[in-house]
Design a protein around this nucleic acid. Structure first.
Lengths: 216, 216
DNA sequence: CTTGATTAGTGAACCTTTTCACAAGAATGG
DNA sequence: CCATTCTTGTGAAAAGGTTCACTAATCAAG
């Protein structure tokens, strides 16, 4: 049995995104070559990535968009809605609450927390704000969520992360610049816009392209 | 001469970030082992990455934080201020305008554009909003910028990108889900939060960690 | 001055990931 | 049924990146 490269899994999300676009355009059939052009990838890579998870295509024909999309969703675990809990309702937090692409792709916020006492109890983007100290209570009710989105200030980040872990949440999307210390069984994705800007700076300065082929 | 891996350049930004933290803490000397622990990297990798660009350390001693930081900034082209132009002053756009980490790390917004006539002429986060049709005029004045930050709706993205390119801008940080079509000499970094969430979904569903080691 | 402890720099080995090239299967037209 | 065209699935080769293991340099203590 083959070891599946992490990066192949990430690319599945990319493929799924483009398959969804094809589906919305009413396209029923697609070849690895066409999909590769859309994604900016190599057709052989797409076929190989898919092969790690099964056989989804028909030789001489291509891939049926709907079938492949459903198969990929099943593999990635995105054939369901995932609930998000926001920590830190500042500029970025508010923007994330209203970020349409989340809802479109099956991610909905069910809870929002902030340290600011004046904010607690008020509504932002139709979400009632709670105190992060109350996370355990919130999680028992309709505010229950699967993934924490951390958008607090740097000073609150580690503290919040510990509360999140203690409440039994095992996944964090971390927008703070802090390297979180969490138990091994907790998954953390660090998002850092400035790193991406640095890549552009280097490319502009040296003329050598270090931008990434695929979106992240 | 060696070919420098793209990914090594990206990691330099990570090292620089942690060196800045050390510098702020008054630390003057650091070893590859210590820095590696901070960054969550392998010490040999740090030494190798640095070696692509020169010799910055002292054997038996380590790296002088300040010297290395300055050297890295020089290499990456971040020993200067970079000016950003924002396109699309919606939820996300506003959040980016007020994003403290940008200013802290040498990125400042000098211009902001929106299609909404009611917004044009008003101020958001102390920035006057212009029409994207006027980009060429704005660029001649104090609103001149080096990198475009694209945070419009999907429908406006490609159109805006073309205007940006025509105005002579060669770098775009793209927050829209659109795969931009631009000339070869224009650098594009695509940011997609949902892809990162998908990685967490897969990890949670399968138990196998596909999150990235380093922030992006 | 010598010894021992550190730590950067680096060639080589190792591992991972991407790409190639072709066999196998499917549709179409005669 | 056969030939042709298409496209997937996949072993193997190539490319790319990471880690190891050792050398060279530096410092401190005896």
């Amino acid at each position: 049995m083959h070891k599946i490269p992490n990066i192949a899994v990430i690319r599945l999300a990319l493929y799924a995104k483009h398959l969804e676009m094809l589906h919305n355009d009413g396209v029923e059939l697609v070849s690895s070559v066409k999909l590769a052009k859309m994604c900016g990838a190599n057709p052989a890579q797409i076929r190989k990535d898919l092969a790690y998870f099964g056989q989804f295509g028909v030789r001489g024909v291509g891939y049926y968009v709907n079938d492949l999309l459903n198969a990929l969703k099943e593999v990635m675990g995105t054939n369901r809605t995932w609930r998000l809990g926001l920590f830190g309702v500042g500029n970025l937090g508010k923007a994330l609450l209203g970020f349409e692409q989340f809802a479109q792709r099956g991610f909905i916020f069910t809870a929002a927390f902030d340290k600011d006492i004046d904010l607690v109890g008020t509504e932002v983007q139709g979400m009632e704000i709670s105190q992060s100290e109350d996370i355990k209570e919130v999680i028992k009710g309709p505010g229950c969520f699967d993934i924490a989105v951390l958008a607090t200030g740097a000073d609150r980040a580690q503290d919040c992360a510990m509360r999140i872990v203690e409440a039994g949440i095992h996944a964090i999307l971390n927008f703070t610049p802090v390297r979180l210390v969490v138990p091994e069984n907790v998954f953390v994705e660090n998002v850092d816009f400035t790193v991406r800007l640095h890549a552009l700076c280097y490319s502009l300065t040296t003329g050598s392209d270090v931008t990434q082929r695929h979106p992240r």
